[in-house]
Amino acid sequence: MAKMDNDQGQIPYHGRKKGSFIVKVDYCENETWQGRVTWAEENKSEHFRSALELIKLIDGAMHGKLSLHQDDDKENAGTA
């Protein structure tokens, strides 16, 4: 199988920015965490439904495009 391309952003590790995140865990259900994370530098918040999702949100922010989509401050659709 070809090389994995796991991250949505294409910036390699050495291109990472620094980031500050404020994490509020509201519930601990189903063996994981639910709450809200705020990306301080960008003043953006997202709800997370699991620790995995929290990690992916932070990791995504660190790997994401440096120029943000300015018009996308609304929360993303939650369910498929």
């Binding site: 199988m1 391309d5 949100l57 994401g64 989509h69 993303n76 939650g78 498929a80």
Partner: peptide, 21 residues
């Protein structure tokens, strides 16, 4: 997670959230 996504198995019940579009 990348492998599971590539295989689309098991399928995700919820859409991925992101700070980005």
């Amino acid at each position: 997670e990348g492998l599971l996504d590539e295989w689309d198995f098991p399928q995700k019940a919820l859409a991925t959230r992101s700070f980005f579009k």
